[in-house]
């Protein structure tokens, strides 16, 4: 990961010298500046298009319902904080935040633990059936949850987990495992075997090597995988929709939708609720953004 985050960091820091280091050595400095202006302009428009709906939701939460009815696209004139404070003061919102947090944290922890163990076995042990097991996990990508949701619901119901967070967590772990293993196997395979030999000479078995060394060396991959699992769980909609029926067990996406349909006339409060529900994922993501992009860009190069 260190290798991955480096380019991004130098890139952002090196903005002053950016023009000189630009990819295209041809062209006069003046031309370059004008192309850069065009690029900034395009980027600005792009970001405007990207953020406008988000801004609409957030700003709408500061307006009154009559304002929204009279002029749906106006700016807030009086900045109603009460919409937000009402939502923040309601128990249901925090219950749902709690439920989403429990589901996301538990999913992430188990996915990382199980995935790391399985990826270690698949990347550093040679055994009969290794290929078959690896193929089985990768085939999991061909089974999106949409296809399996009906029988999954029946299965969860038959083991008595409907309406519990466990009924959401366990299937989420199962469906996140293929991605996790596929990302982690190359990470673990890239750990030099000399390290393991050295550890073996020092008396560490393979399991000891796993717990003492691999878990630490794999942290960059673990973070990428963990963030993907966390955000997927935080935003997950279809599975909770099937599994959770009682409002006390609702996760945030379900709760947001329930709130939106129940208080459909109270548009401004719906917008406030919706804005608040997206904040945790946004914070979490911006904290780790570089890790995600870095994990996609090229974390460990052999």
């Amino acid at each position: 990961m260190t290798t991955a985050s480096l380019p991004a960091r130098t890139a952002s820091r090196g903005s002053g010298t950016g023009a000189e280091l630009g990819r295209r050595p041809s062209g006069l400095p003046g031309q370059r500046r004008s192309t850069n202006l065009v690029i900034y302009f395009v980027a600005l428009i792009l970001i405007g298009l990207t953020l406008a709906p988000v801004a609409y939701i957030i700003l709408g939460g500061f307006r009154t319902n009559s304002e929204i009815t009279v002029d749906p696209s106006g700016f807030p004139s009086s900045w109603q904080w009460s919409n937000y404070t009402d939502v923040l003061g309601s128990g249901t919102f925090w219950t749902q935040v709690g439920n989403s947090t429990i589901a996301a944290v538990a999913t992430t922890l188990f996915v990382v633990a199980l995935g790391l163990m399985a990826a270690y076995a698949l990347s550093r042990y040679a055994f009969r059936g290794r290929g078959a097991i690896y193929a089985l996990f990768t085939a999991g990508l061909m089974f999106p949850m949409t296809v399996a949701i009906t029988p999954l619901y029946i299965l969860v119901r038959s083991i008595g987990l409907t309406n519990t967070l466990g009924g959401v967590i366990v299937p989420q772990i199962a469906f996140a495992l293929p991605i996790t293993i596929i990302i982690l196997v190359p990470f673990l395979a890239a750990i030099p075997s000399e390290l393991q030999e050295a550890a073996a000479i020092d008396g560490l078995g393979r399991l000891g090597f796993f717990f003492r060394m691999v878990v630490r060396l794999a942290i960059p991959g673990v973070i990428t995988v963990g963030i993907l699992a966390f955000v997927a769980s935080w935003n997950s909609y279809m599975l909770p929709l099937f599994i959770l029926n009682s409002e006390s067990a609702y996760t945030l996406p379900l709760g947001t939708q329930a709130f939106a349909s129940r208080y459909a006339v109270d548009t401004s409060k719906v917008l406030a609720f919706t804005s608040l529900s997206m904040i945790p994922a946004l914070i979490f993501f911006s904290l780790f953004e570089r890790r995600i992009v870095g994990g996609l860009t090229g974390a460990v190069k052999g």
Binding site: V54, T256, E289
Partner: peptide, 15 residues
């Protein structure tokens, strides 16, 4: 640019 991808489908849908 990545923000919409991170926001939950529910938020996107309601908004």
């Amino acid at each position: 640019i990545f923000v919409p991808y991170v926001i939950a489908e529910v938020v996107v849908g309601i908004g």
